[in-house]
Amino acid sequence: IDVRFTVNGLDVTVRVRTEEIAERVKELAKNGVDWREIQRIAEELNK
């Protein structure tokens, strides 16, 4: 599942395995978490 969001004007796409992880990623993006941090968290959750 590809999750797309915009952080500080940057369009970011993170690929995740499940809808649940996708929701977590969207939540982080909404809360203004840095995209590199979101990427790292997504990689952890995908394991």
Rank of each mutant, 00 (worst) to 15 (best):
residue 25 V to L: 14
residue 29 A to E: 06
residue 38 I to Y: 00
residue 30 K to E: 13
residue 4 R to S: 14
residue 19 E to N: 11
residue 26 K to L: 14
residue 35 W to F: 14
residue 6 T to A: 12
residue 10 L to Q: 14
residue 22 A to W: 03
residue 4 R to Y: 09
residue 32 G to I: 07
residue 14 V to E: 00
residue 9 G to N: 06
residue 29 A to T: 05
residue 8 N to R: 02
residue 12 V to Q: 06
residue 10 L to G: 06
residue 45 L to E: 06
residue 46 N to R: 02
residue 29 A to Q: 07
residue 10 L to D: 09
residue 35 W to S: 08
residue 9 G to L: 03
residue 46 N to W: 05
residue 43 E to A: 11
residue 4 R to I: 15
residue 41 I to S: 03
residue 9 G to H: 04
residue 32 G to C: 02
residue 16 V to S: 02
residue 17 R to D: 08
residue 24 R to G: 03
residue 2 D to A: 04
residue 9 G to P: 00
residue 19 E to I: 14
residue 36 R to G: 15
residue 35 W to C: 05
residue 35 W to G: 08
residue 41 I to N: 02
residue 12 V to A: 05
residue 6 T to M: 13
residue 18 T to L: 02
residue 16 V to T: 05
residue 24 R to T: 14
residue 10 L to F: 11
residue 5 F to S: 05
residue 10 L to N: 11
residue 31 N to E: 13
residue 29 A to C: 07
residue 42 A to F: 04
residue 27 E to L: 08
residue 38 I to M: 03
residue 41 I to F: 10
residue 14 V to T: 03
residue 8 N to V: 04
residue 33 V to L: 10
residue 41 I to Y: 08
residue 24 R to Q: 11
residue 21 I to P: 00
residue 16 V to M: 02
residue 37 E to Q: 06
residue 35 W to K: 04
residue 13 T to G: 05
residue 18 T to D: 09
residue 22 A to F: 05
residue 44 E to I: 12
residue 41 I to M: 09
residue 36 R to Y: 12
residue 2 D to Q: 05
residue 13 T to Q: 08
residue 13 T to N: 08
residue 9 G to T: 03
residue 30 K to Y: 09
residue 17 R to M: 15
residue 39 Q to M: 15
residue 5 F to H: 07
residue 1 I to W: 11
residue 24 R to E: 07
residue 38 I to C: 02
residue 24 R to I: 14
residue 7 V to T: 10
residue 17 R to S: 13
residue 15 R to S: 12
residue 8 N to I: 03
residue 23 E to P: 00
residue 29 A to R: 04
residue 41 I to L: 10
residue 33 V to I: 13
residue 12 V to H: 10
residue 8 N to K: 05
residue 36 R to Q: 14
residue 31 N to T: 13
residue 46 N to I: 02
residue 9 G to M: 03
residue 30 K to C: 10
residue 34 D to G: 07
residue 47 K to E: 12
residue 16 V to F: 01
residue 39 Q to S: 09
residue 11 D to Q: 13
residue 7 V to F: 07
residue 6 T to Y: 05
residue 17 R to T: 11
residue 31 N to Y: 05
residue 30 K to L: 11
residue 35 W to R: 05
residue 18 T to V: 02
residue 13 T to H: 12
residue 19 E to D: 11
residue 7 V to G: 09
residue 33 V to D: 04
residue 31 N to G: 09
residue 5 F to W: 06
residue 20 E to F: 06
residue 43 E to F: 03
residue 31 N to L: 12
residue 42 A to K: 01
residue 1 I to V: 10
residue 41 I to T: 07
residue 35 W to V: 14
residue 18 T to A: 03
residue 19 E to R: 08
residue 26 K to P: 00
residue 42 A to E: 01
residue 33 V to M: 12
residue 10 L to C: 09
residue 27 E to K: 08
residue 8 N to L: 04
residue 20 E to M: 10
residue 16 V to E: 00
residue 14 V to R: 00
residue 38 I to S: 00
residue 14 V to F: 04
residue 20 E to G: 11
residue 23 E to D: 12
residue 16 V to R: 00
residue 11 D to A: 12
residue 10 L to I: 15
residue 34 D to F: 05
residue 38 I to T: 01
residue 15 R to M: 08
residue 14 V to L: 13
residue 37 E to N: 06
residue 43 E to W: 02
residue 7 V to H: 11
residue 32 G to W: 03
residue 14 V to W: 01
residue 33 V to Q: 06
residue 3 V to W: 00
residue 24 R to K: 14
residue 29 A to L: 13
residue 15 R to E: 07
residue 31 N to I: 13
residue 4 R to T: 15
residue 6 T to E: 14
residue 43 E to L: 07
residue 47 K to N: 14
residue 45 L to S: 05
residue 26 K to R: 15
residue 34 D to S: 11
residue 37 E to H: 03
residue 31 N to A: 15
residue 29 A to K: 04
residue 32 G to A: 09
residue 29 A to S: 06
residue 47 K to H: 14
residue 25 V to K: 00
residue 24 R to D: 02
residue 39 Q to E: 11
residue 38 I to D: 00
residue 31 N to H: 11
residue 12 V to R: 04
residue 22 A to N: 01
residue 39 Q to L: 15
residue 5 F to K: 02
residue 15 R to K: 12
residue 11 D to N: 11
residue 42 A to T: 07
residue 14 V to P: 00
residue 40 R to P: 01
residue 22 A to V: 06
residue 25 V to G: 00
residue 31 N to S: 14
residue 26 K to C: 09
residue 27 E to P: 00
residue 6 T to C: 10
residue 43 E to I: 10
residue 36 R to T: 15
residue 24 R to M: 14
residue 28 L to Y: 04
residue 9 G to D: 11
residue 29 A to W: 14
residue 13 T to V: 15
residue 37 E to G: 03
residue 11 D to P: 11
residue 11 D to V: 13
residue 42 A to P: 00
residue 44 E to Y: 06
residue 20 E to S: 11
residue 35 W to P: 12
residue 26 K to Y: 05
residue 14 V to Q: 01
residue 36 R to P: 15
residue 2 D to L: 08
residue 45 L to A: 08
residue 39 Q to T: 14
residue 36 R to I: 14
residue 40 R to K: 14
residue 23 E to R: 12
residue 16 V to L: 03
residue 15 R to C: 10
residue 16 V to K: 00
residue 44 E to T: 09
residue 3 V to I: 12
residue 5 F to G: 05
residue 12 V to E: 03
residue 27 E to G: 07
residue 18 T to Y: 03
residue 47 K to P: 04
residue 1 I to Y: 10
residue 8 N to Y: 01
residue 17 R to W: 09
residue 14 V to D: 00
residue 34 D to P: 08
residue 11 D to T: 14
residue 15 R to F: 04
residue 15 R to V: 13
residue 12 V to M: 12
residue 11 D to Y: 04
residue 44 E to K: 08
residue 14 V to C: 05
residue 21 I to R: 01
residue 37 E to R: 02
residue 32 G to V: 07
residue 21 I to A: 09
residue 29 A to N: 07
residue 11 D to G: 07
residue 19 E to Y: 06
residue 2 D to V: 07
residue 35 W to L: 15
residue 30 K to F: 10
residue 5 F to A: 06
residue 38 I to A: 01
residue 9 G to Q: 04
residue 21 I to H: 10
residue 24 R to P: 00
residue 10 L to P: 01
residue 45 L to W: 10
residue 33 V to P: 02
residue 39 Q to C: 10
residue 18 T to S: 12
residue 23 E to W: 04
residue 46 N to Y: 02
residue 4 R to H: 15
residue 2 D to Y: 08
residue 24 R to C: 10
residue 13 T to D: 04
residue 15 R to Y: 03
residue 31 N to P: 02
residue 7 V to C: 07
residue 16 V to H: 00
residue 27 E to A: 12
residue 46 N to G: 08
residue 33 V to A: 11
residue 44 E to S: 10
residue 46 N to Q: 03
residue 38 I to F: 01
residue 46 N to K: 01
residue 41 I to G: 01
residue 46 N to T: 04
residue 13 T to S: 10
residue 32 G to K: 08
residue 5 F to M: 14
residue 45 L to G: 04
residue 44 E to F: 06
residue 9 G to A: 03
residue 7 V to S: 15
residue 1 I to R: 06
residue 44 E to P: 01
residue 5 F to R: 02
residue 20 E to H: 09
residue 2 D to E: 14
residue 17 R to I: 14
residue 19 E to H: 13
residue 32 G to T: 05
residue 35 W to I: 15
residue 6 T to S: 10
residue 2 D to N: 06
residue 37 E to S: 05
residue 41 I to Q: 08
residue 4 R to D: 14
residue 14 V to K: 00
residue 17 R to H: 11
